[in-house]
Design a protein around this nucleic acid. Sequence first.
DNA 1: GACTTGCATTTTGGCGCCAATTTTTCTAGG
DNA 2: CCTAGAAAAATTGGCGCCAAAATGCAAGTC
Lengths: 236, 236
Amino acid sequence: MGDASKKKAKARRRAPPSEDAIYERILAAIFEHRLAPGTKLGEDRLAGIFGVSRARIRHVLPRLAHESVVRLEPNRGAFVAQPTVADARNVFDARRLLEPGIVERLVQRGELRPMLVQLRQHVASERRARAANDTRAIVRMSGEFHMLLAEMAGNALLAKIMRELASLTCLIIALYDKPSVPSCLGEEHGDIVDALAAGDAARATKLMVHHLNHVEKNLDLSVAEPAPVDLESALA
Amino acid sequence: MGDASKKKAKARRRAPPSEDAIYERILAAIFEHRLAPGTKLGEDRLAGIFGVSRARIRHVLPRLAHESVVRLEPNRGAFVAQPTVADARNVFDARRLLEPGIVERLVQRGELRPMLVQLRQHVASERRARAANDTRAIVRMSGEFHMLLAEMAGNALLAKIMRELASLTCLIIALYDKPSVPSCLGEEHGDIVDALAAGDAARATKLMVHHLNHVEKNLDLSVAEPAPVDLESALA
DNA sequence: GACTTGCATTTTGGCGCCAATTTTTCTAGG
DNA sequence: CCTAGAAAAATTGGCGCCAAAATGCAAGTC
């Protein structure tokens, strides 16, 4: 390959990236749709890119695999996961179950003045990204909004689960987004924040469910699965 | 140490345990309260016990750490996790959010005749273990009941999350169980199955929430945290 | 006699090498 | 010209060795 120079160029000069840093970097790349689903994540390749040894990479990949963000095939390597249509429905189903509860816990927490200003700032950033047509920022911040809500709900466990669901949702959008509409619906995040500011928990949860339904409906989940070719049964 | 013979005795003669097998074995030991919270999980110790190389162990421990079942201290080793009181409350809070939804999804699935027989069999096994006063089996099967429900709900993602929550619950019971009452409440699992059999989703979810509340109330979560000695702030 | 300091042992962390499997390419045949 | 087979290259998986850090012990000192 003749792009050895490019690898060298991307390796940090004398910054030894920590293990968590590599983890976050790969996750961020997936979040921003810089790594397409199905992309092979070769060990040597990644080691060269980050300027670390292969052993370091071999610690990070299983971690990502455990969150179903990468798929680990024995003796073949790691690939960015390709959630099936069934997986996608499961993710949205789980989110419809979790996120209304997260919103409820957030309002029950009381004293959400400082949280509201942070949420408003985030929504404003989203609006700016949308105005600039910065697709990567739009998708990333859209996921971050939901992660922010979860972190504010005061339950670190739920926040961790929400992080994982947000990552998977990013992959799903990358795979099944209809080219027609920009996947991020206008001001629905802002509407949720407004309901929270009004202390109307019921409306906030209802808006959250509707929002999730809208996002899912804007995906093309009707496509037949990439032919689950079951040779054994097909040739019986 | 003079117990080198005991290690050898426990090592499988000529059965090379797979990586998943080791994972499951350690998890099972935690489930059955054979490994107390805080126990150190030395690498070559485990390697000797399972008769595998240290490298194999070094792949399993991070996996368990990712589920918060073991705590990984840099340069110190792996320990069975010791969830704090706050962690415990978070776990039960998350379960109160998830499990009613799981029950709902189960009934909406329809055709639960075969599932009901399996659930009834499980409840019967639990009853038998309770009659035999087999504490380990009681705790293990109590967690397995909830995992079974989640797997039947038709959402593999929710099932995975429930598995993790069940593991953590086992640790929490091991840490905070009041010696007074056996932590597993009589026939509450059976009552939930009865409600499912009657097709009464509302009652089933209500019973589930009550059940979780009962389990939590039977724990001693009032103990003051082991003094989160924050030296920096204490000596300012 | 108790505390501190220094050293030895044990354990984890990391790096490099070698074997196994897969994928690609080259060659021979139809 | 295309297909099937085999050899070669590349990549993953695993094992062992070596360095770094932490713990426990022992000796020295006040």
